[in-house]
Amino acid sequence: MSLLVVDGLTVVYPGAGRPAVAGVSFEIEAGRTLAVVGESGSGKTTLALALAGLLDRRARRGARRLEVNGEDLLSAGRKRWRQLRRTDISFVFQSPVNSWNPTRTMKAQVKDGMAASGRAGRMPELYDLLGRVGFEDPERRLEDLPHQLSGGMLQRVSIAVAVIREPALLIADEPTSALDSTVQSEILAILGELRREVNLAMLVISHDLSVVSRVADDVMVMYGGKAVELGSRRNALHSAVHPYTKGLLDSVPSLDGERKTLLPSMAPGPLPAAGCPFAPRCGLAVDECRRTEPDLAPVGATLAACPPAAAASTYTSGSPSASTRSSTPASSTSEGSPGCSDAAGAEGPP
């Protein structure tokens, strides 16, 4: 049974035309990591907040199913959500600096967090954990105010406080994108290691595919609030079907050289009122795309929300990599996505 079940999750902010998250469905099994990828404004943070009961009070949330550990959370009240955050669901935010009150010492705040999960008296365990993730002399350094510590140090504390309560689900919203690259890899390594130890399910958000390829078991690509592609890491990265996913892959500098293509019309224009959100930027768009909103459906080795691409791939089902190539957006001149030759992965979607 999956640890987290999300079915048809929709979040609408007041005054917004389109939902920020529109009918997203996926599951995460215990011990697995799902990476959510997508450009700015695609609804990644909104999705993550909804899963922790941390949405703005004004936001409206709906879903067919929302379950953690088999418990239905659609009817959970604010109290229950707080309880879940204390024991089952941990959150690591994008900006380590903004995650802490600038006017209170780290120790005071960390203690508050420990007390909230019933671990007030177990600070030494936290110091141990911090020491292990490369935070030197934690007992003394935590006396500092947040701005006296570096981003990497602060994020180590955030992660330690999140993990020490041994949650079932850890949600990390772009945990490394505010850090410089060496620190990024350190933090990713820490996350990966702790995750294996505690065997927790993890949802990692990123707009950076290199992060995804390091930590994820499965990948979900979002565009305009919708999940447009969902599959195992290998399949989503190597035999992607959806034009947006392929554009994303092509815009990553390829390992073997200079070639690097950006998505057509990167200007984040307004999303269309109806139909496929990607239609204005899609080289494959047909009239039908502007009328009906496609949903995820099995295509080749992944799930993709794009009927035209699905159709194209069935014609050429004998060679998935050829189909991938043929449906690449017109302006793309890329010959190969990063190391994509071993496209036919064996893993199925979760």
Binding site: R85, F93, S95, N98, W100, D112
Partner: peptide, 20 residues
């Protein structure tokens, strides 16, 4: 954001609002 982060750590509303 730190208010949301404090809530994420499971702090009670009273502590989040009155202390932080």
């Amino acid at each position: 954001e730190y208010v949301r982060a404090a809530r994420a750590r499971g702090l009670s509303e009273w502590r989040v609002v009155m202390v932080d």
